[in-house]
Computed example of a mutant assay.
Amino acid sequence: MRLKVLGCSGGIGGVQRTTSFLLGRHTLIDAGTGVGELSVAEMAQIDQVFLTHSHLDHIALLPLLIDTVGAMRSQPLTVYASAATLDALGKHIFNWQIWPDFRQIPSAAQPFMRFCALEVGESLTLPDKLTVTALPALHTVPAQGYQLDSGQGSLVFTGDTTVNDSLWPILNQMDALRGLIIETAFCNRERELAQASRHLCPAMLAVELAKLKRPTEVYITHLKPGEIELTMQEISEDAAAFHPKMLKNGQILEF
C-alpha cells in the first residue's frame, strides 16, 4: 500500500500545503490545501475521506473537492470522522451559509456526500483490503489519529495532538509498525504556545517518543513554514535517538 503526501505543512506559502495524504487511489486522510495537488481526474476517484478533526488546515479543500467532482461520481463521497467532528462540519461549513450542504444535493436520496461516524477504537476495512482504525488524540477540539493496516504492515498518523499517554500502549502492541507520522508544530521557545494549543514542540516530542517501544521510522509533520529549519534542528538534538525525518510534499511511503 502507498501513502502519498499531498500536504504536510502547518501553514501555507510558496510550495507549502496543509495536511492531506492520498492513500492508494481512492482514499484521503485529511483534506487540507494539499488536495489541490490532485488533478480533477484523480479527485473524482476519491471514494472516502478520513478526517482527524475539524480545524481548517485539515478540512479546507473538502468543500471544493465535493463541489468539483460530485456530479462526476455515481456514488456519494463518504466522509469518516468522529461524530463531534461531523457535527462541527454540518453546523459551520455545510450549512448553506459558508457552503451548500452536499448531503442534500442534488437530493437527500442521492447526495454527493454522506457522513459516517468512526470513533476511537473502531475500524473499517476498505475494498482494497486496507483497514483503518481510529486512534486517540488530544487537541483543542475532538480529534483522533489513524492506524493504516495493509495486512503486511501498519502506518500510524497521530493527527494534531499533544502529550497523549493513551496512544503509546496501542502502538507498542503493533507487530508490524512500519512508520509513525507525528506532528511538531512549534519550536522549543514556543513551548507554552504548544501546550496551550495542544500541539508538540521538540522537547515534548522527545518525551513522547521515549514511550515508543517498537523500532520504526519516525516522520515529522505540521512544521510551521517560518520555523522549519529551527524546529528540525531542535528535533535532531532533542530526539536524536529516534532519527526523525521531516515529511515532504510528494513523498511516498509504502507499508
Rank of each mutant, 00 (worst) to 15 (best):
N95P: 07
K129A: 07
D149T: 11
R114H: 05
V49M: 11
Q144P: 02
Q144E: 05
V132G: 13
A134S: 08
L180S: 00
A71E: 07
S123K: 03
T131K: 14
L118F: 08
T133R: 04
F115A: 03
A117Y: 00
V156T: 10
Y80K: 10
E192D: 09
E190D: 13
L180R: 12
T161V: 00
L64C: 00
T140Y: 15
V49R: 12
N164S: 04
E190L: 04
T131A: 09
F115N: 07
H53L: 07
A60D: 15
D87L: 10
I93P: 02
S166R: 15
Q152T: 09
F102I: 14
P127G: 07
G145P: 12
T125A: 07
K91R: 13
Q104C: 02
R114Q: 00
V49F: 02
Y80I: 00
G153W: 04
L148C: 13
F102N: 11
W99R: 14
G70C: 12
A84R: 13
H58A: 06
R178Q: 01
A109R: 03
R103E: 04
L124S: 01
T161W: 06
T125G: 01
P127D: 05
A88I: 12
H53W: 05
R114A: 02
V132Q: 01
Y80T: 01
L62Y: 15
R178K: 15
I170M: 08
T52P: 05
A176Q: 14
R178C: 05
G70Q: 05
A108G: 10
T68L: 09
H139N: 06
L62R: 10
I66M: 04
P136S: 05
G179E: 05
L65Q: 14
L124M: 10
A83K: 14
A84V: 02
F112L: 08
I182P: 00
